[in-house]
Design a protein around this nucleic acid. Sequence first.
DNA 1: TCCCGAAGTTCGATTTAAATG
DNA 2: GCATTTAAATCGAACTTCGGG
Lengths: 348, 348
Amino acid sequence: MVTIRDVAKESGFSSTTVSIVLNNAPLARYIPAPTKKRIERAAKKLGYRPNLFARSLRSKRSHTVGVMVFDMTDPYCTLILRGIENSLYQSSYLPILTDVHNEGSRFERYLEMLLDRRIEGLIVLANWLFLDINLLADLEKSSIPTAVIGCELKTDSISSVIVDNELGGHVALEHLHSLGHRKIAFIRGPKTLGDSAPRWKGVRSFAQVNNLELDPRLVVDLPESRDPISGFEDGYKLTEELIKRKRPFTALMAFDDLTAFGAIRALTKAGIRVPEQCSVIGFDDVAPSALYTPPLTTVRQPMEVMGNMTVSIIVDGMNAVLEKKTTGAVHRKVAPELVVRESTRGIL
Amino acid sequence: MVTIRDVAKESGFSSTTVSIVLNNAPLARYIPAPTKKRIERAAKKLGYRPNLFARSLRSKRSHTVGVMVFDMTDPYCTLILRGIENSLYQSSYLPILTDVHNEGSRFERYLEMLLDRRIEGLIVLANWLFLDINLLADLEKSSIPTAVIGCELKTDSISSVIVDNELGGHVALEHLHSLGHRKIAFIRGPKTLGDSAPRWKGVRSFAQVNNLELDPRLVVDLPESRDPISGFEDGYKLTEELIKRKRPFTALMAFDDLTAFGAIRALTKAGIRVPEQCSVIGFDDVAPSALYTPPLTTVRQPMEVMGNMTVSIIVDGMNAVLEKKTTGAVHRKVAPELVVRESTRGIL
DNA sequence: TCCCGAAGTTCGATTTAAATG
DNA sequence: GCATTTAAATCGAACTTCGGG
């Protein structure tokens, strides 16, 4: 490997000067152009690449950000990860990706590994959370800018980016209502999930304002689960259950897209055509939704944007750390967007 | 931050001894148990964590592996990444994830960044490849164990893991044939994609052995494209085109699952029910396939296993490097597996 | 005082060589 | 020679201090 001393020898200057020139340090102001030229040429000639271990040892910087995903196989992650990756790339940080598999022990182990590597920032991608006080404390005293995506937080040490679930619920019901639907079934999220309550609140507030009656016999709840695929299976079962109740409905609002897929499957199996006989709306707009037959109408979380946003928050945080300033946590709630495709239709 | 010297002071021994004890180095044989105890207790008491920058600077090891994905949004990636992550975790390596966005320049930039960080191994996830001689040369001389998933390679410096496409093509057609289908349409892969030819070869060989005639008017080719979603759109258009040709077919074999989704959409739009009037089979078994309506019959690539396998190859390679042995590249071709769901059905 | 460059110290751990009883 | 411990050199870059013009 070629070191800075090799460049020094080759160029005829000391390693100090080489360092100053190649890093364009403040002192480089004083160094005459010819000297710079010679050093730069020598560096290029030898193919010099500074040793990041050595550099990091001195500077205490790693230019690395930890990304912890609770479950990679959740389609919700993909676009967010893309957004994170892309923004990080712009800022010349590299991500270490860890997948916690929804296990607390794995979270702790990975967190330790990341801390050992002196990550400068941490992004956690979780739609539910088991972060207990201990872990929060660990992070707080480490003073590493941290942001969570998909989970509302009250702490002022950890930032958060989340979709406006209440607005989303509102928008979804508004869409069905505007199509003329009045008998609407709902598959709500698991009670333990933070998203569930606000989404339902949005639904209720729209219903109230518009004098829409919500039939409690058409409302069911997803059971708690950490497996992303179970939303599909449970959506299927709950829809079967709804059909069995013999309370007619012309539209169904699913907690998320996977649940909607399960619902469509169950409706289709029961001979109920979507959207001719029953409209279905999802939430999230994960990638497969656009490819589904019928293409799914849904409430989109702007996932890529949320990824970008999160990076910008922690980059700001990291810059603040570098300048020894302190910044409080930032909490962003982004507006969802109705995406009308073909799984919903007006009532004849 | 607490350093090894703090531990030395606290325990009353020198930093040398502390290092020897905590790393359980060969010399630790000579160190009496009481000494070890005291050092370990001091370390624990202070919460000592060795500085990895310093350690890496000496040892020249990073315990880091680079993972380059050509396009994260390709659903093909997800499970493979999960397999990679999980195996890496077992081996205590951490992955740096980079997404090349199908751009050569981005590939080069990322490769440089990874090399600068002294990754000990590299995994490239590509279903097509623009690796030119230059990049290969770079990697060769760097002597970093490298493996490519999803692309057949001839080099003996870079390992590869790939599904047996020919067998897959064979298996898919065999399935349709066994269901009684004789008039079968084919959407083949883009000519420039390495997977396309062998899959078609498998199809042809099965047809030949079983005296099945392949009507060239029922065979169309996907155009070249780097965008994963385009498989869907092109599948849609090509299926419309096939329908327009008025050559009846009772089954359609799509190049991959996304193409199959597009085909199903087109068939449905044309009033042709799947599978009642036309069976459709895909390839890959990406996550959405099981959730589709109808659930997609497909030829599964064992993606998680392929990820595991690739890690085991490069871990072996990295161990060889540590022991200054040399190992040649490993090339693995794994068997796909037919997954029968509900998009295919026997002819009445 | 301003400009240019270098010697020497530091970051924190590992390792070699050597000193002790 | 042996068991036990350590001072000092090393890894490669960056920064502090200093000297000469």
